[in-house]
Design a binder for these strands. Sequence first.
DNA 1: CCGGTTTATTAGCTTCAGCTAAAAATATTA
DNA 2: TAATATTTTTAGCTGAAGCTAATAAACCGG
Lengths: 225, 225
Amino acid sequence: MINPAPARPLSSSIGDYLKAIWTSSETGAVSTKEISQTLSVAPASVTNMLVRLQEMGLVRYERYRGAALTEEGRAEALRLIRRHRLIETFLLEHLGYSWQHVHEEAERLEHTVSDEFTERLAEFLGHPGHDPHGAPIPAVDGTLEPDDSFPLSDAGAGRRVRIYKVGDDDSMLEYLGERGLVPGRTLTVKEVRELDGVITVEDEGGETYSFGSPVARRVFVRPVP
Amino acid sequence: MINPAPARPLSSSIGDYLKAIWTSSETGAVSTKEISQTLSVAPASVTNMLVRLQEMGLVRYERYRGAALTEEGRAEALRLIRRHRLIETFLLEHLGYSWQHVHEEAERLEHTVSDEFTERLAEFLGHPGHDPHGAPIPAVDGTLEPDDSFPLSDAGAGRRVRIYKVGDDDSMLEYLGERGLVPGRTLTVKEVRELDGVITVEDEGGETYSFGSPVARRVFVRPVP
DNA sequence: CCGGTTTATTAGCTTCAGCTAAAAATATTA
DNA sequence: TAATATTTTTAGCTGAAGCTAATAAACCGG
């Protein structure tokens, strides 16, 4: 069975939990506190919800030990992320949204929209593989392109890299967008200054730019062969 | 103040009540029963909600006497209807939805979408004045084109009429759409049979069609000068 | 104008998803 | 390792928005 719709439609907050867990679960289990912070919800509420999510089979959870998604939970999270990214793409490319406003709107819409809407939208958009931040869009069958990118701040001097995606922090996006730091751009790292982490890069036209580490940590790149 | 956004975002069920009241309020106050049926909700729940809606200033309500929208309630209802019809237009014209599926999706989306989304979508669609059923789309300032159409079943023999809108009953829409009974079409009424209410019309190409009264009551027309 | 039918309301309960405050478990550090 | 700090859980509450069952008002036919 590929990507079966959940029996009962999941409430929007359930989806928020799944996404939050998915996002911060690169390293195993996720703590109550972490979830509570991502969702701006009291820790006690998180505990509560985790118990329920476990009963629903979406999460594995052990008291005082944190939570992780089950296969089913992961599938549901990826479905939401697919929706989110497709919707973002639509808002940015067709409705002229600014990067600042997209995220919030997409966040709300992704919980409301049906599978039919999602797939028709995908069709309308020409089945994009990435959203405009460069983040890969999970496929209908729950497949997600492996992500081997790393922060620009970790690239050594002399490296040639291509921007893969940019973090989706609202104010940062605007800043990066204005400077043309968008996915697909190829840069050569000229210098990484030990002292303060300032990194200097050169674009294809020979222009050079310098960024502090807060920026460099939010621009993800991959090596260019 | 033109169309002020409500202080707190209204929950989706509140919107459902407002729309339900608006829709069945051509003749003054709306009864608890009527609302209860439109929304498939127990009468007791309706009473409950009406009290709250009154406290919020969206509805005028007197025990045992029914409810009517206040100016504020009406404005909110029209805002939702504007959203609904714009969304329907998008789903039908750009995502290739069938008339059957549009309504449900639009119903859910209209509660989620922001004003910004609505207006950007209106822009994207070229600020249409009517949705694809022919129903007028309320303007941003809450203005709604007066509707002087009447059911085809009430048009006397010999009348020349233009289809203005078609009822949005799901199965009916498909039926009508297949026969090209869409808004804008001009027809001449040839005969209205007393006995069973069957009405025979001729289109501009000289083709004739006959419809029983269930259909004829759902096709709204205006006289053609 | 009285009695029955229909429609509305009240009272009291349920579920969801949050909250606070207090208690318990785990982690850290002196 | 003991004391302190941090994190997590438990217990119990809140507010929406629904529900049922019982009661009350309004309407209607004889």
